[in-house]
Design a protein around this nucleic acid. Structure first.
Lengths: 138, 138
DNA sequence: GCGCTGCATCGACGAGTGTCAATATCGATG
DNA sequence: CATCGATATTGACACTCGTCGATGCAGCGC
């Protein structure tokens, strides 16, 4: 067994293949879909993880390696690694190993999905925005 | 002390008076603002609470009383009440007592804020959309 | 090969969360 | 006023979560 340790490079694409982009107000959420969404929102429900997302998203090139993230917090390196794992498993981040370093990027489709769920109906219904979101999803 | 029990009708307007509407990628979040946002996202990070939001938002007139919400779940009434309180304290719901019943409504400004934070930069920067969001905030 | 650096995992701990049954409070109605 | 129906609060429980130190694994350089 040579590939027994593909830990860090797992893509963990937990996003539903084609999830609804309708806002909350359109209709009551199904139980399954609410569970999927809740996992993503819960991942964002921590100040450290929110700041991690923000740092990664605003970093040059849209990606940041762990060594860029850790010094921004007063937390141990394992703790940061744990938070990154939570965001990865929620489908909000993906990582890629390049040499010694591991680089993280956000998943715009996942963020667009959450934004669409929260967005007021007037903004997503017209079609232009929905099209824009759908474009992001491809 | 006659007003010792104004529990249910508290507005709990925990939303920052004028919070930034910039997406995550615009710049790293400040620690304080990340904490505020995390409280709202955490409130949405539960399937029951997400479905509660959805039912309220999609209900006729944009409001629903607790007796409309409770039967939608296989949970006790105190548990539903607890979840409603969490959403209220996060600034995502407000409630109003009318007679025996208590009606809940969503807070569009709060949802718009979260959507703006998640939204891709291209969608919020142009100005038209930003204006729309700001309009919702008034 | 050996060591070194960057990152992930493990195991453990205290703090927080979701749930319930029991109880309290409010408003309406008799 | 006594009662009843609709919600909120309390207290208790199991469970999850955030954090750490210790450890493990991968890649690079000597």
């Amino acid at each position: 067994m040579s590939n027994h340790h593909d830990v860090a490079v797992e893509q963990t694409s937990r996003i539903a293949p084609l999830a609804p982009l309708a806002p909350l107000a359109h209709q009551p959420l199904t139980q399954d879909w609410a569970g999927e969404l809740a996992m993503m929102f819960k991942a964002l429900g921590d100040p450290v993880r929110l700041r991690l997302m923000s740092i990664v998203a605003s970093h040059e090139g849209g990606e940041a390696c762990v060594c860029d993230l850790t010094p921004a917090f007063d937390l141990s390196q394992p703790t940061i690694s744990h938070h990154l794992k939570v965001l990865r498993e929620a489908g909000l981040l993906v990582c890629e190993r390049r040499g010694t370093w591991v680089y993280y990027r956000t998943v715009p489709a996942a963020l667009a999905q959450l934004a669409a769920v929260l967005g007021p109906a007037e903004l997503t219904v017209p079609g232009s925005l929905a099209a824009a979101h759908r474009q992001v999803l491809t």
